[in-house]
Design a protein around this nucleic acid. Sequence first.
DNA 1: CTCGTTTGTCTAGCGGTGCTAGGATTCGTG
DNA 2: CACGAATCCTAGCACCGCTAGACAAACGAG
Lengths: 189, 189
Amino acid sequence: MAIQQRRERQRAERHRLILDTAREIAETEGWDAVTTRRLADRIEYSQPVLYSHFAGKDEIVAAVALEGFGELTDSLRAERADPAARLAAVAHGYLRFAATHPAVYAAMFTMDTALTFADAESPEPLRAAFGLLRDAVGGSTGEPDLESRTELFWSTLHGLATLTAANRLRPTHAKERLALLITQLTATT
Amino acid sequence: MAIQQRRERQRAERHRLILDTAREIAETEGWDAVTTRRLADRIEYSQPVLYSHFAGKDEIVAAVALEGFGELTDSLRAERADPAARLAAVAHGYLRFAATHPAVYAAMFTMDTALTFADAESPEPLRAAFGLLRDAVGGSTGEPDLESRTELFWSTLHGLATLTAANRLRPTHAKERLALLITQLTATT
DNA sequence: CTCGTTTGTCTAGCGGTGCTAGGATTCGTG
DNA sequence: CACGAATCCTAGCACCGCTAGACAAACGAG
């Protein structure tokens, strides 16, 4: 009886180990360095073991991405009375997450993995994150077009995040860009 | 004498053929389908021929991307008197380019190729495209923070382009998002 | 305690990738 | 026509994601 429990526990631990290691390699050497051989080597098992936990490499990065959504949501929680301040805090949280965990962010948004979106079943954590964005946008502007406003806000944040990660924006002016964004959003009725 | 010219001309033609074919495969089957073997097969030469034109696969996609910058610049030319209309036209042109040539757009911005940026030597065509964006932004708003305003505008367009390509925004509301963007930009002093 | 059975893991290998060395072949020239 | 040079291709390297089948370990039954 208890034996099976121990096995399942150990299996779960190894599951975690795989995800943590994949994430660590990706964050330090990039996703290209995350190969099944290297990953298996790092966790001190052979490659086929990976396939007893995940259907393939894609599923591994998808799992890392999925956990990322949860963390992103955490980074977006900001209780502020002032709508503008809240919007700024949320934007800052978003960009900080993307800057701190670039590989995870890439897995979530730029590497199109096998994660289904938008249609039927977006992952719940993503819906939660989007909801926080919507709340922040809705707090500062009015009701109408709230969904589109949120999509636009998200697009801007995503653009800033990716172009910053690709080193295509002046790093010295990040704060200025963010301030401009908040100004533009709050100036509109 | 003239023979050498013919050879150089044929070489140039093959150079073009490689780029066009790579682009075509990428646009129809995705960049993953652009392998050196398939590419060589399609142009009816062996793989090593590719390496007599380009140092490696990365350079091929970089070359495709470079040409894309020129085309993007063309898509951004819009002579309009009204600043707001001009801004809208530029934004529309940008998004239309991204939507029409998703693979080329990906090569330009999301697949970080061996193209140097921002620092010393950004490719000239990219500077030109960015200049057009700046002109459009500068025409509708004032002088101050023009560079940052342009970067922010670009980030929004890039975010819209990539999230749209990834099917993460409601396709039915593209126009609405664009209208909102213009409103927000022109409302600010 | 011993013996099957089940469960878990690893070794070896498949077809694919980007890339390259070295031989074969074609081509223009004397 | 024969030689020299430029051109191209065949064959192979190490690596990739993934899998079949052999092997060993752990368990339950008698």
